[in-house]
Simulated assay, not measured.
Amino acid sequence: MKRITFITLALLCVSISNTFAQKNKKMDIIAYYTGDSQLIDQYEVGKLNQIIFSFCHLKDGKLTVDSPKDSITIKHLVSLKATNPQLKIIVSLGGWGGCEPCSAAFSTAEGRLKFAKSVKTLSDSYKVDGLDLDWEYPAIEGLPGHLYQAVDKPNFTELVKILRSTLGKKYELSFAAGGFQKYLDESIDWKAVTPLVNRINIMSYDLVNGYSQVTGHHTPLYSTNPKEESTDRAVEFLLKQGVPAEKLVIGGAFYTRQWINVENINNGLYQAGKHVEGVNFKDYAKTYTEANGWKYFWDDKAKAPYWYNASTKTFATSDDLKSITAKAEYVKAKKLGGIMFWELTLDSFRDGMVNEIYKVKTAK
Rank of each mutant, 00 (worst) to 15 (best):
K191Q: 13
V193M: 12
T194H: 09
T194M: 12
P195T: 10
L196A: 11
L196P: 10
V197P: 00
N198S: 12
R199E: 13
R199S: 15
R199T: 10
I202N: 02
I202A: 06
I202E: 01
I202H: 02
I202Y: 03
M203V: 10
S204L: 12
S204Y: 06
Y205A: 02
Y205C: 02
Y205G: 01
D206A: 02
D206N: 07
G210N: 06
S212K: 06
S212A: 12
S212V: 01
Q213R: 05
V214P: 03
G216R: 00
H218A: 08
H218V: 04
T219I: 02
T219M: 09
P220F: 06
P220H: 08
P220L: 06
L221Y: 04
L221P: 06
Y222W: 07
S223Q: 10
S223K: 07
S223C: 02
T224D: 07
T224Y: 09
T224M: 02
P226F: 03
P226S: 05
K227R: 12
E228W: 02
E229L: 08
E229V: 04
E229I: 04
S230Q: 05
T231Q: 04
T231P: 01
T231C: 14
R233V: 11
A234T: 08
A234N: 04
A234R: 02
V235T: 00
E236D: 14
E236S: 13
E236F: 02
E236M: 11
F237H: 12
L238M: 14
L238P: 02
L238Q: 03
K240I: 05
K240A: 14
Q241V: 03
Q241S: 05
V243D: 00
V243T: 03
P244I: 07
P244W: 06
A245W: 03
E246Q: 14
E246M: 10
K247G: 05
K247S: 11
K247R: 09
L248H: 09
V249S: 07
V249L: 07
V249F: 07
G251N: 03
A253M: 00
F254Q: 04
F254R: 02
Y255S: 07
T256Q: 03
R257M: 10
R257L: 08
R257P: 01
Q258P: 03
Q258G: 05
Q258V: 12
W259L: 01
V262D: 01
N264V: 00
N264D: 14
N267T: 04
N267G: 05
N267H: 13
G268M: 00
L269T: 00
A272H: 13
A272P: 11
A272F: 14
A272E: 15
A272Q: 15
G273T: 04
K274M: 11
K274A: 11
K274C: 08
H275R: 14
E277L: 15
E277V: 15
G278Y: 07
G278K: 08
G278L: 07
G278F: 04
V279F: 03
V279S: 05
N280H: 11
F281G: 01
F281A: 14
K282S: 09
K282F: 10
D283G: 07
Y284H: 14
Y284S: 10
Y284I: 11
Y284P: 11
A285Q: 15
A285G: 15
A285V: 13
K286Q: 15
K286L: 11
K286T: 15
T287V: 14
Y288F: 15
Y288W: 13
T289V: 13
T289P: 14
T289F: 14
E290K: 13
A291S: 13
A291Y: 08
N292M: 09
G293L: 09
W294V: 05
W294N: 05
W294D: 06
Y296P: 00
